[in-house]
Design a protein around this nucleic acid. Structure first.
Lengths: 218, 218
DNA sequence: AATAAAAAAGTGAAAAACAGCTTTTGTTTT
DNA sequence: AAAACAAAAGCTGTTTTTCACTTTTTTATT
């Protein structure tokens, strides 16, 4: 099943020269069959209907006019869930990589890659549903762990912390006072103090503040 | 620097037999130097002060009495940021793996692993700060992509959605009405309707609801 | 065009949240 | 023991939120 039929692929990239070059390179491989190419997400959507076949793997650029790679990937994900998307971009910042994966890409390659690497990635993603190189895995881990910088350098007293955590519920301040065995007025002091210190103006603001600083987890 | 000094390690696991067996196996490797062992997180904390040296890598079980692997890892992370933690557990569910990595583990091994794999992982994590095998990378990707199941099956009208999103701010209902070009009373209708439909009792509840269903992102 | 259903707008009243400022209590400092 | 300080509790008044209802306007259906 691997050698018999070539893998149908599509290439989405707004730089004509790069696209043509890539097609030229990949045409050398009999394992691949390039179904269509498109210059951005919108263009891709149209090609789907007129194409002679359905691609199994899509090579997707990120930076494109009209409809970028994030949106295009999300769209494919929704309309053709079985299709595999391999991001192919010059960008190697965490943000781009994470967002592309979150949008539904199963792998991420830099444009500096060699043709054989691309071929290998296409085969891998077709077979396993994902192509995970060091580039990707490192960012994934970093993303997860960086997010876990729970409330550092916030300088909250124990009571203030507990108060903030209880704020993230449907308890009224009065009920929070009961839970903490304090007078409602004391709770009001905490509230006012925190409002002032962190430029917060409402109970809703308290909840968002606690959440953003990971003082609680949903 | 790799071959000269053995790598100081510690082993935290509540099953004495497993711990002893592991120590016996790893003692065979001259590249390792087992500084201490502990039966749970609390025990580990105490051993730190009395140990003859500081470990560079800690092999950490998850399921333990008193103080489990998650808490112990977070503690080490905070008090010895330079130390590397290698999770070593029987559990292979997404939840455990993700949570352990989020707590600060740099790698995750199953207890079925071979001794040589453990040795290799220890070396890798000491050198690169992380040991990323397929087990880990797969879960990381899945975690990221699964999380993108924003508010499915919630049946909210466009206006209700926009209202909920605006609720996650310090705007008052009146200001939200302005933003949406609607009367405050209509906003009140939305509020009341959503309160009833999803058993919510306060503005705070609305924020939490929107957040839990990923209607907005922080 | 009549009718039903949904969305939007309105009233009025009670509870909760917000703001500013004062007093009491308890602990530390000297 | 007095002074200094912070945490806790208190008071007053305004605004926002919440609740239970009714009415008008718009949209869809037959």
């Amino acid at each position: 099943m691997n050698t018999s039929q070539p893998i149908p692929i599509a290439i989405i990239d707004d730089h004509t020269l790069f696209r043509q070059g890539l097609i030229s390179l990949l045409s050398e491989f009999p394992e691949l069959d390039i179904i269509f190419e498109a210059s951005d997400g919108r263009d891709m959507q149209q090609r789907f209907s007129s194409a002679r076949a359905v691609p199994e793997v899509i090579l997707m650029d990120i930076t494109m006019p009209v409809m970028d790679g994030f949106a295009a990937t999300a769209w494919v994900r929704q309309h053709y869930p079985e299709m595999h998307i391999l991001a192919l971009s010059m960008r190697e910042d965490d943000k781009a990589i994470i967002r592309m994966l979150r949008s539904g890409a199963g792998g991420y390659l830099l444009k500096e890659s060699k043709a054989l690497e691309v071929l290998n990635a296409i085969k891998t993603i077709r077979e396993h549903g994902h192509f995970l190189n060091d580039l990707v895995t490192l960012r994934l881990l970093r993303n997860l762990q960086n997010n876990a910088t729970s409330g550092a350098g916030l300088e909250l007293s124990n009571n203030e912390l507990k108060f903030l955590q209880l704020c993230c519920s449907e308890l009224t301040y009065k009920e929070i006072a009961d839970q903490m065995n304090l007078s409602p007025h004391t709770i009001d002091n905490y509230r006012q103090e925190i409002f002032q210190r962190f430029h917060i103006k409402s109970r809703t603001g308290l909840v968002l503040f606690a959440l953003r600083n990971e003082l609680i987890s949903l």
